[in-house]
Design a binder for these strands. Sequence first.
RNA 1: GCGCCCGUAGCUCAGCGGAUAGAGCAGGGGACUUCUAAUCCCAAGGCCGCAGGUUCGAAUCCUGCCGGGCGCACCA
Length: 626
Amino acid sequence: MRSDAGDPSPARADLFPATGGSSRRSSAGRPRSARISPFNDPRYGAGTSEIGVLMDLEKLLSDRLAPAFAAVAGGPVDPLVRRSPRADFQSDAPLALARRLGRPPRDVAAAVLEHAVLDDVCESAEVSGPGFLNLTVADRTLTDLVAGLVGDARLGVPPTAAPQTVVVDYSAPNVAKEMHVGHLRSTVIGDAAVRLLDWLGHRVVRVNHLGDWGTPFGMLIAHLADLGEAEAAHELSMGDLDGFYRAARAKFDADEAFRERSRQRVVALQGGDERTLRLWRLLVEQSERYFLTVYDLLDVTLTEDDFRGESAYNDLLPGIVDDLDRLGLLVSSGGADCVFPPGFGGRDGEPLPLIVRKSDGGYGYPATDLAALRQRTGELGATRLLYVVGLPQRQHFAMVFAVARAAGWLCPPAEAEHLGFGSILGTDGRMLRSRAGESVKLVGLLEEAVARATDLARARNPELDAEAAAEIGRAVGVGAVKYADLSTDRRKDYVLDWERMLSLDGNTAPYLQYAYARIRSVFRRAGTDARRDAPIVLAQPAERALTVELLGFGAVVAEMERSLDFHQLAGYLHRLATTFNAFYERCPVLRAPDELRESRLLLAELTARTLRQGLHLLGIRTLERM
RNA sequence: GCGCCCGUAGCUCAGCGGAUAGAGCAGGGGACUUCUAAUCCCAAGGCCGCAGGUUCGAAUCCUGCCGGGCGCACCA
């Protein structure tokens, strides 16, 4: 069972229905008719929504505008509906269409308006500026849609109509080596991808592509043998993997006899020597045990079942070479077996090979990656392969994918995507390093985050007992690190700045967690849940703004299924929290007259559920109090 | 040398063909006998690296330059 520490199962199941599984399934292939509305669709009674899709305002407006555009253009046109600073929404499409039709943009916009049926959902719809359509949604539409959200455990996000098998390759630490900040991004981003795709109803296979094979293992095993198994196991179980590695390395550099023993160990390992293999397994097991403690601290859903080291593909490697040869793709160059995918050049302008088998007969990581890919599309039947690996390996994956396509191991509908990411920088703008110039230990980083967050919690709240402070410190500290990673475009480098990411305001995890805790506090005081059937009343602009924001969750999540750009979800959650805090400031909940009080409790509950679900998708915990 | 990525407010970042380029932080001014002020409100802050081009319209697309990062055959 996966130790999903961030599972949103609430203390009060009635208030926060579980959202882990696909509890409701919308009718697949449902027609996207523009004429279906919350008001005329018999399946769509207020508060008892059977389908999630029409809780999405953008889609509702888009569906209404599409036929009108089609009528004007004589063919399908995407209405390009988006949020607008001048109204609730705007359509940009008339501008582009005007050129195609050779008519003035404002005329086109006006013609679209004439054809569009918007009266029942919009308070106003008008041509604006050079030819935009500004749409202001009727309050009645907002209250009806948000009432549908109340009854929807999935908050307006329907499960996918086309489930795929998705393999997510992420984390991938190296045996007998410490996890460092470089593994942080892969682990955090990969885990968010897994959580999202799983929630959307895909079959997700986590693969932790452990670095558990290769020449360094000769050295490590030789060192292990010198120490004796018992002593080595003890050292490794302390979690000091780097100490072990460094000691082996130092002997390797200094001692010729040790170097020779190391080389013999490599040969013995590859030759399947039982005693050597046993030592190797000890190394792997101890390392895996250590990695699991890091994953536990990180609140990541990886378990022991997800380890699939490079060695797992060893038996498949000769077949890869043979089959490439049979397909006529293999070229011998400099004694190595290579494939030269077109379009890749090297330093000297020569074609760049993917070296499948080295001149010494050994296999490198290209062979392993090809074998793994083939196993994923073949045996596992995956149609989406994600590789959460740093951007420097971009060319490598482009070549592997190109060769796999040429070999027929990667063909539609299956597709592979390198989910690359940038580096973590220090506040000096350079790659994050420890003072000694080494890579920074991941656990050290996490421990510092937790310690800092715990201190902050104590300083804010001196009456907290030690246990509560520790729990808050952990959720906030780890959440802050993960959120800092996920809240900016993953392709860019980002600066790790303690002050900023642990700050209680700004686009940070603590800010979002605090908004959630505040809402929970309201419900503790209320001593009751929100009444599910209470009508939503939009008495003030802040209530209206919050409602519009709540209705945007589905569109953001839907967009991320494809892009996996988690900073968009982070941005949405921050916007939602900001909008809620403004609402909270101006709209008393518990002190309000009955009707308003019930309505506001519902809005608060929806906000909390959305924050919790959104943060959960990012792998970040919420707290009942802070 | 070839290739890829990145230069947006003092700082960290959104925006990637559409209206007057948005947030947050820091700095300035205001709001606490609080439904948790770990909050909110207000004002200020920009030749979107530079120069051309395409377009009714360019931070966004194309070309060239400048600055920074990364990769380029037997390490993964």
